[in-house]
């Protein structure tokens, strides 16, 4: 019996001829003859099973790979989040030291170290009339008035340029043990307190001011 059509018909087709009155016949004859037919019928079934099992295997494997990928992504996310946290901390620490370094206390101290003095009042030029007005008074000298008076800032403790010995350098951070000993490597007074600051070895010992180079 030729098999046509869909696979859904396959299992039921061979069952029909065997159905009418099998009990009246001797069982041996029945077994021999239909056997090749049944084999012919079973062949497509095997292909179906193979396809089915392979399909399931592929789906399972796909799912496995997918979840591996997702889990791997989670580790990557976790790692990047850790990195981000570290970088944010760096940024905050650098900003903090920048804020302290731009405080009026340090700016005035550094300005006076460079030999700067306070300014006087300003003369004005009227662009309409060309007349000048105002008298230049005051100016010169230190804001501290020679009394050594100073508005304190604990935030500047250890900041470069303010304390003579900043005692730390960017290089000593990276290598841990090798620089942890009493002999700290080349320090730069200009480098900010944060760890990622570039070390300006050209500027010499600690406490050196960042003086401009005339070209």
């Amino acid at each position: 019996m030729p098999i046509r059509g869909t696979s859904a018909l396959a299992p039921t087709a061979p069952a029909r001829p065997a159905a009418p009155g099998p009990a009246a016949r001797p069982p041996l004859r029945v077994v021999e003859n239909p056997a090749p037919r049944r084999l012919r019928v079973a062949r497509p079934r095997l292909a179906h099973v193979v396809v089915l099992v392979a399909g399931v295997a592929v789906i399972l494997l796909g799912q496995l790979l997918l979840s591996i990928a997702v889990a791997d992504g989670a580790y990557r996310v976790s790692e990047l989040q850790g990195q981000q946290k570290g970088l944010l901390r760096d940024q905050a620490a650098l900003q903090e030291s920048l804020d302290a370094l731009s405080s009026p206390q340090r700016l005035s101290t550094e300005a006076e170290k460079l030999g700067m003095v306070t300014s006087g009042t300003l003369p004005y030029l009227d662009l309409d009339t060309g007349a000048t007005s105002g008298v230049r008074i005051g100016g010169g000298g230190s804001v501290r008035g020679g009394t050594g008076a100073e508005i304190g800032n604990v935030a500047l403790d250890g900041a470069p340029g303010v304390q003579a010995d900043s005692g730390s350098s960017a290089s000593s951070l990276a290598s841990g043990w090798s620089d942890a000993g009493p002999s700290v490597g080349t320090t730069s007074g200009v480098a900010p307190a944060g760890q990622d600051a570039p070390v300006d070895t050209a500027s010499g010992g600690s406490g050196t001011l960042p003086s401009p180079v005339t070209r």
Binding site: A92, A93, S168, L173, S175, W177, A180, A193
Partner: peptide, 13 residues
Amino acid sequence: VTLEVYRKVAALD
């Protein structure tokens, strides 16, 4: 302690 000190201590492992 500051981040700088913390990183140095962490680097000691």
